[in-house]
Amino acid sequence: MVPVRLTGPRLAIREYHHTPEDVDALHALFGDPEVTRYLPFGPRDRETCADQIELYLEEAMAEPRDTYRLAVCRRTEAEDPADAVPVAHAALTLGPYRSARLGYVLAREVWGRGYAGEIAGLLCDLAFGPLGLHRLAARVDVDNEASARVLTRLGFRQEGRVRHDQYKDGLWSDSYRYSLLADEWPGPTA
């Protein structure tokens, strides 16, 4: 495995560690009903989050690697991002024809600080740079206006609305599909 380490102005993206700190951080995200509101699953318990990190580490070892589920930490001068506690989760899932799906989830206490845009930008840099992808796609719940704004600012284009594509808690929801092509990406964000 070649570990992923991406660095932006305020954030660093790294592989997860199977440590109590990373498990607690993932549980802070995936255990919060407000954070998981637009995700395809409801709040998860700590044990499930520990199992998720184990899966993420197994996926990172796959050859060839097609799934990147990564920890996002704030950068500070006082600590190495490799040891920092994650405040968000980033994901790239590779598909056919040099494409991938992009995703991000942020802890509630860091909402509204522009971190989602920095995370998505760093993932675009990885996808269109070292991974050599041609197309990125993202799914956004129609009620998640903040995420739609993030993608639009980065140059993603809305391709359409998919009706009743997610069923959660007894309700169907629609989503918007967004995409960005390699030749539309202006280049590294850092």
Score class of each variant (00 low, 15 high):
M1W: 15
P3S: 15
P3N: 13
V4L: 10
V4D: 00
L6K: 04
T7K: 12
T7E: 13
G8D: 00
R10V: 11
R14M: 10
E15V: 02
Y16V: 07
H17G: 12
H17T: 13
E21M: 11
D22F: 07
V23I: 15
H27E: 04
A28W: 03
L29N: 12
F30M: 11
F30V: 03
G31A: 01
G31R: 05
G31H: 03
P33N: 08
P33E: 13
E34M: 06
E34L: 01
P40S: 14
F41R: 11
P43A: 14
R44S: 10
R44P: 05
E47R: 08
E47V: 05
C49Y: 01
Q52D: 14
I53C: 12
Y56G: 05
E58S: 10
M61R: 08
A62H: 15
E63N: 07
T67P: 00
T67S: 09
T67R: 02
Y68V: 04
L70F: 11
L70R: 06
R74I: 11
R74T: 14
T76F: 11
T76I: 10
E77A: 15
E77Y: 08
E79A: 15
D80T: 12
A82D: 14
D83A: 15
D83M: 14
T93M: 02
L94C: 13
G95C: 09
P96W: 01
P96V: 12
Y97Q: 15
R101D: 14
L102W: 01
L102V: 07
Y104D: 02
V105I: 14
V105F: 04
L106K: 01
A107M: 00
A107L: 03
A107V: 03
R108W: 09
E109C: 02
E109R: 07
V110W: 07
V110M: 08
G112V: 08
R113C: 13
R113N: 12
G114R: 03
G117N: 00
E118Y: 04
L126S: 09
L126P: 07
A127S: 08
F128N: 04
L131V: 09
H134F: 04
H134E: 12
R135P: 06
R139N: 10
D141T: 03
D143V: 02
N144T: 05
N144Q: 05
E145M: 06
S147V: 02
R149H: 09
R153G: 11
R153H: 10
Q158K: 11
Q158R: 15
E159D: 12
V162P: 02
V162Q: 04
H164D: 09
K168C: 00
K168R: 05
K168N: 02
K168I: 09
D174Q: 02
Y176T: 01
Y178D: 04
S179Q: 01
L180Y: 02
L181F: 00
L181G: 01
P186V: 10
T189A: 13
